[in-house]
Design a protein around this nucleic acid. Structure first.
Lengths: 143, 143
DNA sequence: ATATAAATGATAATCCTTTTCATTTAGAGG
DNA sequence: CCTCTAAATGAAAAGGATTATCATTTATAT
């Protein structure tokens, strides 16, 4: 389950950020999109309802949301800077290569592997990046 | 075990690319580095021995090497465009957040998870991105 | 040696992202 | 409600990374 728009605005307020119409618009756009968006794509989407917004504001809003971990970066989609709304807690992404839809999943599949790597390499492991890329049912049927 | 310089030059020739001194220099630099390098960092390194080389040539060489899968992109290191020499076959990276060293490992830890995701989501999974980030023994001791 | 297509490097052009700064505004406190 | 103030905005410019253009050079097949 993904974070709701309300949770996000609440977290912004809680951290002392002002709730401007522009920020609401960016949050609304990203929260209502099932797939991941680049800053430019998000800008285009937001401008439909909010033509006066500046691209800079989109960047600044994304920066804040990322710092508060309310959105997360998607890598496997090709573009290195795509964002999607965060799900609470640790999770991973399954991304459709055609339509870009992002499905979250979670689980602790990697703890055994982490332990083994620690033993064998002496590394202290702090985090990981795991994403699957594929084709969703819908895109497969329409191909 | 990582690809040797010889394997890489052989593959270049085999695919009809010419073996120029500049390309040798780029390959030498990337093959001799245990960590991952951005195009700019690689450019700086190559210029020490080969001052006349252009940054453009570095980009072009990286493009070819990536297409032939002789080098691979590293994501978790922060910069979205870092490259390191490829290991033959499918593998993953364990990256030191301090010194950038990249350790390869392989295994088939994800096939069960892939099957489950297929069943539950209807996706046809084509690939994945798995990287661990942490601190190597050496960096931990010197911290 | 020669011919030729490919590769190079300088330059310019494009993106994408971040700074700067004057103006506007959200939200706190009266 | 007003007023005030720091924060946020948008326009413009700057900065950085990557790609395109093009005349010149060069690796390699012959």
């Amino acid at each position: 389950m993904r974070l709701s728009e309300n949770k996000i605005t609440a977290s912004l307020k809680h951290h002392g950020y002002k709730l401007t119409p522009q920020r609401r618009a960016v949050i609304g756009a990203i929260a209502s999109s099932p797939d991941h968006l680049t800053p430019a794509a998000l800008y285009r989407k937001v401008r439909q309802d909010h033509p006066a917004i500046g691209l800079v504001t989109v960047y600044r809003t994304l920066e804040i949301l990322a710092k508060l971990e309310l959105i997360c970066e998607v890598h496997a989609g090709g573009s290195c800077h795509s964002y999607t709304i965060a799900a609470p807690g640790h999770h991973h992404h399954l991304i459709c290569a055609d339509c870009g839809e992002v499905i979250d999943f979670s689980g602790y599949y990697l703890t055994e592997l982490e332990k083994r790597l620690c033993r064998e390499t002496g590394f202290e492991i702090e985090g990981h990046l795991l994403e699957f890329i594929g084709r969703c049912q819908n895109c497969r049927q329409h191909a």
